[in-house]
Nucleic acid binder design. Structure first.
Length: 497
RNA sequence: GGCGGGUUGGCGGAGAGGUUACGCAGCGGAUUGCAAAUCCGUGAAGACCGGUUCGAUUCCGGUACCCGCCUCCA
């Protein structure tokens, strides 16, 4: 077995990965707050840590790896979304609206992450809802943990709130390399009068009648943001587990606070052994933000006809600990590479053996760009040979699948707009005309037809087996559709006449 | 103000103290009615200033610029 090395944020070094229990390797990834569609940035950790999950399953066996990813379904943004619906005239109760909203969002999330080829989390290889816990299903565990923190002198109740006492945990700030005093000095923290220290954070807060709430020893209320991950990871993975992952923006305060809660509640345990953080995503060199107008969701891209596999490839082009830039140029490149690989291996056969050299690259802190380069080399070797054996194809596929690529054939790439029956039919009829003209060696008219259809977004090409059409869609997909069909039909009548 | 990341050829993007990354684009060729696709071949680099070294793009120090976090955020 190849040794896996991972850069542990906690120690700031690349260290060999030694599981606590090789029979049950346990990993936790901070999942989404389910108030809206996942944006592209949400997808990066899912994809890069999906590669780690696949690698761990490959090395330790699928039934020996547990991967938990939570859904945060209690949050003020969710409340706001539900309230907005109620104010828009929805007759249902706020609680029903919240449940409805979170269930719907979880459905979207699954559909979108599935499209990116990410495996569902599992407990020892068994996929179930249990591996994707919802915060609201763990309220009793959170209350118990908070009570324990109070009993151990690490938390205190004040005015219906319960706060964590950061001064009671000397290691507070170690993960993110901050000291409590420094943070207060440069602070933009909101200081509630009942806090003992400005950096103290909320474990439990009171709910108004218009907010979701649960009964607790401190009154009706709801948990603070960080306690859910501490409670759920302990419940599902134990007080000590192997890997805790998430975006670098979660390092502080979220992960710092998780450590404080978990380590103080379970002082005999070490909580997460290895902390992994992916760097952030940018779009065309700039931070993705609504104000810059470059904000989009995974679904937006899929609807534009960018296959999930292509999105995944673009993510893997950049090492997870470096900022990743999403650009149209990368999409074009990724699509080209994948189309080529799909053509090289043809049918997607199972049963191959993944390339040892590629595995080594992945084991070196998930070096996915180098792994892709290795795949390019392998693919070049395959195409250099006149004949490619089924065995070679299967091996190549097995390698690609360790990265979550080549899992489905390119029929999944079909552009939703190009599938419109009217359009497909018109294109097919015109292709026949083109084929006939070429057969008759009437190249003048054939070329004219080709150039005509191109003005309406369809490119004809000859292939060894016949003819084919590609759909050239502009970046703004909304302008593509009826006009193109009308244009193609006009051409058709002209060439039939 | 505090903490952290980055700067590699036209572009994307890795590793390695001395030896080809890889891909895209470009260029030359094969193939093709023309294209497309495919195949073969090919030039090109490491922000700046110092230091260590026989030798640094790779290690150390400094400078500049870019980016992120410290508030909800992956």
């Amino acid at each position: 077995m190849v040794e896996i090395k991972l850069t542990n944020t906690r120690t700031r070094t690349r260290e060999p990965f030694v599981p606590l229990d090789p029979q049950d390797v346990r990993m936790y990834l901070c999942g989404p707050t389910v108030y809206d569609r996942a944006h592209l940035g949400n997808a990066r950790p899912v994809v890069v840590f999906d590669v780690l999950y696949r690698l761990l399953r490959h090395e330790y066996g699928a039934e020996n790896v547990t991967y938990v990813r939570n859904f945060t379904d209690v949050d003020d943004k969710i409340n706001a979304a539900a309230l907005a619906r109620q104010q828009a005239g929805d007759p249902r109760s706020l609680e029903e609206l919240i449940r409805d909203r979170t269930a719907e969002t979880i459905g979207w999330y699954h559909a979108d992450m599935d499209a990116l080829g990410a495996l569902r989390p599992s407990i020892r290889g068994v996929v179930s809802d249990a591996a994707e816990p919802r915060a609201t299903d763990y309220i009793p565990q959170m209350i118990a943990m908070i009570a324990e923190l109070i009993a151990k002198g690490h938390a205190y109740a004040a005015e219906g709130h319960v706060l964590f006492d950061v001064r009671s945990f000397p290691a507070y700030g170690r993960l993110s390399g901050r000291s409590v005093d420094d943070m207060i000095a440069g602070a933009r923290v909101e200081v509630a009068p009942f806090k003992r220290d400005p950096m103290d954070f909320v474990l439990w807060k009171p709910s108004s009648a218009a907010e979701p709430g649960w009964d607790s020893p401190w009154g009706r209320g709801r948990p603070g943001w960080h306690i859910e991950c501490s409670a759920m990871s302990a419940a599902l993975l134990g007080d000590s587990f192997d890997i805790h992952a998430g975006g670098i923006d979660l390092q502080f305060p979220h992960h710092e606070n998780e450590i404080a809660q978990s380590c103080c509640a379970h002082p005999q345990a070490e909580f997460a052994k290895v902390w992994l953080h992916n760097e952030m995503l940018q779009v065309e060199g700039k931070k993705m933000s609504k104000s810059l107008g470059n904000f989009f969701t995974v679904r937006d891209l899929l609807d534009q006809g960018i296959p999930g596999e292509v999105i995944r490839y673009v993510f893997l082009m950049t090492h997870y600990r470096k900022p990743m830039d999403w650009t149209a140029e990368k999409v074009r490149e990724a699509k080209g590479h994948l189309a080529r690989w799909h053509a090289v291996v043809g049918m997607l056969a199972d049963g191959g053996t993944a390339d040892a050299e590629m595995i080594e690259l992945l084991c070196d802190d998930l070096n996915t760009p180098a792994a892709l380069a290795r795949l390019h080399k392998l693919s070049n070797e395959l195409t250099a040979n006149q004949t490619i054996s089924e065995r070679q194809q299967a091996d190549f596929i097995a390698s690609a699948r360790l990265l979550g690529l080549l899992q489905t054939d390119t029929s999944a790439w079909d552009d939703p707009i190009a599938r419109a029956p009217e359009l497909t039919a018109a294109v097919e009829r015109l292709l026949k005309v083109w084929a006939t003209l070429r057969k008759q060696k009437d190249f003048v008219r054939a070329d004219a037809l080709k150039s005509d259809v191109e003005t309406f977004g369809v490119r004809f090409r000859a292939t060894p087996s016949g003819t084919a059409a590609d759909f050239l869609r502009p970046a703004d997909a909304s302008s593509w559709g009826q006009d193109n069909i009308a244009g193609l039909k006009a051409i058709e009548t002209r060439y039939n006449a």
